[in-house]
Design a binder for these strands. Structure first.
Length: 111
DNA sequence: GTGATGACAACCC
DNA sequence: AGGGTTGCCATCA
């Protein structure tokens, strides 16, 4: 698989329950600034079973899947299930956005 | 090769 | 709070 996609998926696995990341943030952490859309494409095309794909939302806090679609409902469900409150289809980024701690950053440095 | 599309985002009204 | 514009670029028709 493309190493960039691999990096994105590896980082995604580090996002803790109860927290979310934006597509752009994930791209940045993966060393791919400005490639938010790549993250979206990876999530759509790659096998994300076993990964916390539901913790990825738009920078605005919105779920990027079509409103009412199966994926939208599932993501919403999964987030609520782990304690992430949603106002409609939007989560409060101020409260729930993942800010990598020191330990996580050290792990990222070892790539 | 060309144009459209898209699980995005930053800006500017 | 919305809507339009532009940047991004892999895929696909």
């Amino acid at each position: 698989m493309d190493p960039r996609q691999q990096a994105i998926l590896t980082l995604l696995a580090l996002v803790p329950p109860g927290r979310v990341v934006s597509y752009g943030q994930l791209a940045d952490l993966a060393g791919l600034p400005g490639r938010a859309r790549l993250v979206g494409r990876v999530l759509r095309t790659q096998d994300t079973s076993g990964l916390p794909w539901h913790r990825v939302v738009a920078a605005s806090g919105r779920i990027s899947l079509p409103r009412g679609s199966d994926g939208w409902c599932e993501q919403r469900q999964r987030l609520l299930q782990e304690g992430v409150l949603l106002k409609g289809d939007r989560v409060s980024m101020k409260e729930h956005q993942w800010r990598p701690d020191l330990a996580a950053i050290l792990m990222l440095m070892e790539q």
